[in-house]
Nucleic acid binder design. Structure first.
Lengths: 313, 313
DNA sequence: CTGAAAGCGCTTACAG
DNA sequence: CTGAAAGCGCTTACAG
């Protein structure tokens, strides 16, 4: 016990005892056993993080925010990539539950409902990211995807574009919410939201090029494109350059998320800037408060988005 | 013990006993304790992975390879981002050692030497990635960075460019090896390798634009640029477009790694294609063989690179 | 400020 | 095929 205390609360140990412990630690290269500590204390100091993808820079930024908040507090992470699959997500939850994490930080996908129930049954606190819940017994940090989609579309209409189209990949819930915002803005303007190209394929720059091509075939009079992601937008832009179509002269292009290249392309991309790092950081902070038994009174944090007009639309 | 066996080797249990166990598991929502299992068996089924960055798509691909190999074998991961810092790396090693991982998979940075010694002392197997070691008591999977830098530079010279420059960021060991290849190729061609812009800043598209600008100031007669990374190359390309400089007519641009956007930009990027996923997969496989007590006879695996000529150079 | 006792939930190794 | 015993390395809670 003296050793145990010397390691955790050196202050309450006499200097001579402490020094002997420190000497032994150094001599033996002693490393405390996390497994034993977890078993004895029933606190793992582990937080499970579930994201749909790591190749999407969005979630990498969110991870950085999480680690910057929880790392200094002494937590380690189990980082699970659900790959946008409900099965994979369920599997990860089972596996991670065995590690007895102190909490979960999840970016939901379709079919997350039963998952959240399982976690509730296991009595592990969960904070949802990118997803504003309304339930009083849940925690969430994000922004309104629908409102962001609406705002960007309104912007296009205000700039005078009359036949905007929407292209999207993956079709995860957040994408579909942005799409709902797009459609609402068009309907409110008395326009028909029929110019859409949707595909379940994963998003990529190459796919953006392909979808732009399909869009021009499907709706040659389309004069602006709302791309669900900046990578799609970049690919669409490249395809326009390849075809000699002026952007935004012949066709305007707008993206979503404001990934790093978007400020530098030519033309630079009009987009929605999203608080990705902040979502991670604040979700982590919220979890920390819950774990410390000091939950804040507001259990859903809306971090907002901003419209970032640039050259492309 | 019967329960323990019913869970791990159901075959050696009588059906009736097994069924009672299964019923209880389902009724209670029982989840085995990883901490207890680790403590009792002294096998954690955890592998620690150290990468310098997650915002660099290169390492995300490598992680995917690792997970595809080790996931089905029942391993979980501790993923550590060293952020190219020796201190951070040392800190992560200490922390992870407490979790008693069965092995380490590391992408080294400057100052990894003492780290590797500590891991050797702890008797944890380590496989190094992106780094071909020669030591008989080490394991590594990668390719020759220097040879890749040499090959790309030779290509530029063969295409007739006489005054190629080199731009690089971060200046990690792999970057410096590519640079050595660049310099060697120039010297062998009787040229002076004095056209370089190096910065310790992290690599990004925006930085590529800035470095291109600095390069044109420093060596206005530069007719080709070897960019140490595709993101730098993309930024350089954007900057050329902004200045109205024809690529490759006025200046050729080559990148490194063949990231997804590179095939789609206009002009598409000449680059070196690297086996990022494969490095992760095979490093994991090598570790698996070592853990299973069946180490292969060759302990260093050279996965090669390929030159991918496209439009930009 | 220090320490003896018990226990966290498993597995190993041995006996039957 | 089943089970009793001991122990993995810590922490909790209690006593002094």
């Amino acid at each position: 016990m003296t050793v145990s205390r010397a390691l955790k609360n050196p202050a309450q140990i006499l200097p001579e005892a402490r020094e002997r412990v420190e000497a032994a630690v150094a001599a033996l290269g002693y490393v405390p056993s996390h497994a034993a500590r977890t078993l004895a204390s029933s606190r793992s100091r582990l937080v499970a993080v579930l994201v749909p993808s790591l190749s999407n820079a969005v979630f990498v930024d969110t991870l950085a925010g999480i680690q910057d908040c929880l790392g200094p507090a002494g937590y380690q992470f189990l980082i699970g990539n659900t790959n946008y699959s409900a099965d994979k997500q369920a599997e990860l939850v089972s596996t991670y539950l065995a590690h007895a994490p102190d909490g979960f930080l999840v970016t939901g996908i379709d079919g997350s409902g039963t998952l959240l129930q399982r976690l509730a049954t296991a009595r592990v606190p969960v904070v949802r990211m990118y997803d504003l819940s309304r339930a009083a017994d849940e925690w969430s940090v994000g922004f309104s995807q629908q409102s962001a989609g609406f705002t960007l579309t309104r912007y296009l209409l205000e700039r005078g574009y009359r036949r905007p189209g929407f292209i999207a990949a993956q079709l995860d819930p957040r994408t579909m919410q942005r799409r709902a915002g797009f459609r609402r803005a068009l309907r409110e303007a008395g326009l028909n939201p029929d110019v859409e190209i949707l595909t379940k394929e994963p998003s990529s720059v190459g796919l953006g090029s392909a979808l732009l091509a399909r869009m021009l075939e499907h709706a040659p009079d389309c004069d602006a494109i709302f791309c669900n992601n900046d990578d799609l937008a970049l690919g669409a832009l490249f395809e326009c350059q390849r075809r000699g179509l002026a952007v935004p002269g012949r066709i305007a292009i707008a993206g979503f998320n404001d990934l790093p290249p978007s400020a530098w392309s030519r033309p630079s991309l009009t987009t929605i800037t999203t608080p990705r790092y902040e979502i991670g950081f604040q979700a982590a902070q919220l979890l920390l408060q819950v774990l410390d038994g000091q939950p804040p009174d507001r259990n859903h944090i809306d971090l907002r988005f901003t419209l970032t007009p640039r050259e492309s639309a």
